[in-house]
Computed example of a mutant assay.
Amino acid sequence: MAEAGKPLGAYDIAERLSGAGRRVAAVSVYRALDFLTEHDLVHRIASRNAFVPCAHAHGEGAGLVFMICRSCGGIDETTSPEIEDQLGRTLARAGFRPASRILEVEGECEACLQREAAS
C-alpha cells in the first residue's frame, strides 16, 4: 500500500499480491486489513471503500481527519484535538456512542490549487 501512493481497495491489493499461478483471495486481504486497522497501521477511507497506510502516530484524544483531494485523488491525514473535543461534547449531548470517530473532508489539495492558479 505504501508503494502505491494512493488508496487501495481489498480487490486491488489482492490483484497486486497475486502472481502467476497464485491467486490471493480478497477475504484473506480483508482479514489482514482488519488486523492492520485494529493496530492503527492502516486506515479505511469509508467514502472510497479503500485503505491507506497510517501516516503518523496518533495521540490519545486526537481527532483523525482525512483531507481527500477531488482533483488528484490524494489523501492526507492529520489530527485535531480541538475537533475531537468538540465532537465528543456534541455526541455526549446527543447520547450517542460512536463506533468510529474519523472525519473525511473532500476538496482540493494545496498542490492542485497551485497548479490551478498557475494555469
Rank of each mutant, 00 (worst) to 15 (best):
L41I: 05
G21T: 02
G63F: 04
L17N: 06
L103C: 14
P81I: 08
A46H: 15
E38L: 03
R16P: 04
G88C: 00
S71A: 11
L103S: 13
D76R: 14
F66D: 05
G9K: 09
S80I: 11
G61S: 02
V27C: 14
A57F: 08
I102Q: 00
N49P: 06
A46Q: 15
N49S: 12
A94Q: 04
G21H: 03
A50E: 04
L103Y: 15
I83Y: 13
C54S: 09
Q86E: 13
P81V: 09
A111P: 12
A92M: 01
Q86D: 12
I13R: 04
S47G: 07
T79F: 13
P98C: 02
V24Y: 11
C112K: 00
C54F: 07
L87R: 07
R31K: 15
R97Y: 00
R101G: 04
I13F: 03
S100F: 04
L36S: 07
A50G: 00
S119D: 08
I83A: 15
R48C: 03
R23F: 15
T79S: 14
S47W: 07
H43E: 09
Y11R: 15
I13K: 05
V65T: 03
D85E: 10
E38A: 05
A26T: 14
C109P: 11
A46T: 15
R115Y: 14
G19W: 10
E108R: 10
A2L: 04
L91N: 00
E116Y: 14
R97V: 04
A57K: 11
L8P: 00
F35V: 15
T90P: 00
V27W: 14
S28D: 15
E110I: 06
G21V: 04
A94E: 04
